[in-house]
Design a protein around this nucleic acid. Sequence first.
DNA 1: GCTTAACTTGCAAACGATTTGCATTTTTGT
DNA 2: ACAAAAATGCAAATCGTTTGCAAGTTAAGC
Lengths: 146, 146
Amino acid sequence: MAAMDIANHLRRHKKSLTRARAEIWHILTQSEKPLSPDEIHRRLTGHKVDLATVYRNLRALKDIGLVREIDLREAFKRYEAILPGQHVHHIMCQVCGRIEKVRHCVVQNMANAIQKESGFTLKDHSLECFGICPSCQPHKTKAQGT
Amino acid sequence: MAAMDIANHLRRHKKSLTRARAEIWHILTQSEKPLSPDEIHRRLTGHKVDLATVYRNLRALKDIGLVREIDLREAFKRYEAILPGQHVHHIMCQVCGRIEKVRHCVVQNMANAIQKESGFTLKDHSLECFGICPSCQPHKTKAQGT
DNA sequence: GCTTAACTTGCAAACGATTTGCATTTTTGT
DNA sequence: ACAAAAATGCAAATCGTTTGCAAGTTAAGC
């Protein structure tokens, strides 16, 4: 989604391009990982924006397909900008919490199999991975606690 | 996990096999779809069990690997018994909410690719699908609202 | 079976993320 | 610039989930 298009996209859905909206969108497009509403709120630098407004805008952006909501088994949801031609999943380190993108998506390959098995028409899916990042790999020379 | 084993499994983790625990486990193993804490609570028929106890037990069972927590983009989490040799995902109908199992898991096939791409050691993943079930398929002969 | 320590429960209160009501301000289309 | 529509700040409300604590239940050894 080119920056210019967001205004049109919003207009098509009878939504205004407000200062808060633009700033939130900018923050999301700049971030390399999905952010929580609170993180986004803390990154807002311009005029004061209420946290409730952040929530309202995230929902609005999600509803019109500009933003994706992600559940990484935390107490809150994370949000990320949906960029054109980009199908991304995530992997989070169970030790340090680091979050990385996974561009490899097998779900598309198995879509037919899933549709055949379930009889459903597949519209969307969530795929989040959890593991241990390179920096947190246990050393083989030293015992690790559980 | 055979019904008999649950007691041992609990004991190994210094947990008691209480009446509430047994009943919750039974409800979960009988259900063909993951249940919310509230649904489980409402299905408890024996002596009175507090909702807080249901939550505490679901967490305990999850912590020792007997139960899996599932996020289907609802306001709450769902829980299901982890049965031996069963790797299951789910697909939920975006129209009627019906939930079915998907035994086809491609993630295992792509595990190597994901590990290679991210450098992470893959430990776990969430894969939930959303679509439209057979009964809710739009009819081609009649227009459908959005 | 009895006893005690450990674990669990009910109850009510607390929490934390998210939502909402409403009066006011900003944005939009003309 | 204007009126109508949409968005915002603020505070209060929601709602799923968690927690403190006193009382009840279960486990393990005798």
